[in-house]
Write a protein that binds this DNA or RNA. Structure first.
Lengths: 353, 353
DNA sequence: TTGCTTTCTGATACCGCTACCAATTAGGCT
DNA sequence: AGCCTAATTGGTAGCGGTATCAGAAAGCAA
């Protein structure tokens, strides 16, 4: 006879940590350690527990977690440019992860503000949260990062192009990704490749451009400044840049935009001019956001695992928060994610001359 | 000297139910009864407790509540078409609200499946969650709703066009919104107004069309079937529909697309044909999703308060879950939100003939 | 007043998980 | 092998509420 006693209070069929522990033949405490990714569990034990977790399809009760945990897990994510597909993917990823972890994610919207105001806001925020996630473009702000660091609040930047002391970051290798895309275009036979830069206030923009530039040169193609236009990551700016690029006497046969929204704009301009994509003009983007597949033809682009990055950011932060109270502040880490070149329908060999 | 002992685990300065109880000179249980609005507390006692609550500025810890309460607050949101801007806004809204409420929102992705499979999945889901939110297009599925209702799981549909027994819903008045938009176009001087329908599997599509149709007629404009095209809410389908519409001998001077993605597609086609928007052709959309402001010119469209609707859905569900255990299942409600016609740059009076 | 029912209130035991510390085991060195 | 230190593991006690049931107070009839 089993322990059928149990209180009459027992509700739903949710699997608890005790059941997992019993199945794995360890104590609940050990299971807890595994689910929290603590590192002082023997590999073999971890495996057994993991298997039990998987078989029982266990997922920790967030309410219990946050109740028991001494970590006041409130984490803020400060965003600033709400109208980008990139950001919304990031939000979904982070929020989803947060709901699984019982940490409270508070969203703050900080519009363009003066450094002094930013500083004040950061100081105020530091009093109510345990950690902060900074997506672009705020991830570049030294005043926010500095103020938060001074208050001992761990910060983690997402998709910044630059790795700084004090601030951990989660990102992809923008340089290499842009380089691969450029090489891809070259291998298709293009030599006149236009480039639309990203917003200058984001270091990732520079990295992407550097990747383009370097790869062009390493393939023996001289950089033609007339083929490079400044953009600002917006559809509108992509429109302008594309007009400029296609106005050249010998226009590019391919245009590499620093993000998908601008690439979509390029397609639109091309169509308006009677150019077929990709037959007459190849267009490629960057980020693989919603727009990449919304537009027609669908964009060849660089995929960033945005949701995974958001998750990782939250994880890192949680760990840091937990560590911090344990003593020494950990070294900032630089977590590089793998990107991927996604081929769709917007690129092809250049037209015959 | 006060009871400074307390465990070393005690964290933040949050006021607990015990402190309120001590201040009020009653037991924690009584305080709990008061905060939950139970009716078997003497009036005098209630007042004392209320005052203590106010003075201490106490608010119950949601995590503890959901842990101790019999209500297993796990709520599922089942989505199916992840690549729509509409959905991502919905997700952000719901997730954000969830994180504030300490209820666990689990996201499930159910791709197109056979009724039998859907039924099985619904039955399985019913065992692990306390409530379900159904955004489009799943909100139309009678088998999911039916199965869940049979299992006594409260369901709430978002943005369905139809109000059914058993299923509460949160939506806007699609008919009226479409009607207003049509009237707006007419007031601008348009008489040849094209319409691109939404996906036929969503009842909201029919409502929008009905709004268009009715308003046209009430203004004495005969419905021209050649000006109506079937669409499927995708950019691609908008492209096709726009081509058809603009191929007419006397093409429409305005096109009303049933959502923003399709409207964006219309703009693209118009541009490709050398038509300026809005000078030569007015284009309006529906939903006010990200695409509405990404595209250029920015779309005049109908704004749905998507995030607010997601919040409301969650609230309703939470209330229902809590009530259910109290006895009678409540009547399904039909919560209508106000929409708004947002004028931007894609509409204008028709060109001179 | 007494006896008995009906409210109201309180004591106790947990909800599921984690902090803390003690116990155990593994690993390293003489 | 024998001893000592470090790495794993387990036991216990809550986190802040609520369900349940028992006890106390109040209401009412006799």
């Amino acid at each position: 006879m089993s322990t059928a006693r149990r209180t009459r209070r027992r509700r739903g069929t949710a699997v608890t940590i005790h059941e997992v522990a019993r199945k794995a033949g360890v104590s609940p405490m050990t299971v807890s350690r595994v689910t929290n990714g603590e590192d002082n569990v023997r590999e073999a034990t971890r495996d057994i527990v993991m298997r039990a977790i998987r078989e029982l399809n266990y997922s920790p009760n967030p309410a219990a977690r946050s109740l028991a945990g001494a970590t006041g897990t409130r984490i803020a994510m400060i965003y600033s440019n709400p109208s980008s597909a990139y950001l919304s993917e990031l939000l979904v990823g982070a929020l989803d992860k947060a709901s699984k972890t019982a940490c409270q994610l508070v969203l703050e919207k900080w519009d363009e503000m003066k450094p002094a105001a930013e500083k004040a806001a950061a100081r105020k925020l530091a009093q109510s949260v345990a950690g902060v996630i900074l997506p672009p473009p705020l991830c570049e702000s030294d005043v926010i990062a500095g103020e938060l660091a001074a208050a001992q609040i761990p910060v983690i930047a997402i998709a910044t192009g630059r790795f700084r002391a004090n601030v951990s970051c989660v990102r992809i290798d923008d340089f290499r990704a842009a380089s691969e895309m450029t090489a891809h275009l070259i291998s298709l036979g293009h030599t006149r490749i236009g480039f639309i830069k990203g917003h200058p206030n984001q270091t990732a923009s520079a990295q992407r451009f550097a990747g383009y530039e370097t790869t062009l040169e390493s393939h023996g193609i001289a950089l033609n400044p007339a083929y490079v236009q400044q953009g600002y990551f917006t559809y509108r700016s992509g429109l302008d840049a594309a007009e400029q690029l296609l106005d050249r006497k010998r226009p590019p046969t391919a245009i590499f935009a620093s993000n998908d929204d601008m690439a979509a704009a390029v397609i639109s301009v091309a169509h308006r001019r009677g150019l077929e994509v990709p037959k007459d003009l190849s267009v490629v983007g960057f980020d693989d956001t919603l727009t990449a597949t919304t537009v027609w033809p669908e964009l060849t682009t660089i995929r960033q695992p945005i949701a995974a990055m958001a998750e990782a950011a939250l994880n890192l932060l949680l760990r840091k928060v937990r560590q911090k109270k344990g003593g020494e502040a950990a070294e900032p880490v630089d977590h590089l994610f793998a990107h991927e070149l996604i081929r769709r329908d917007s690129d092809a060999p250049p037209p015959r001359e």
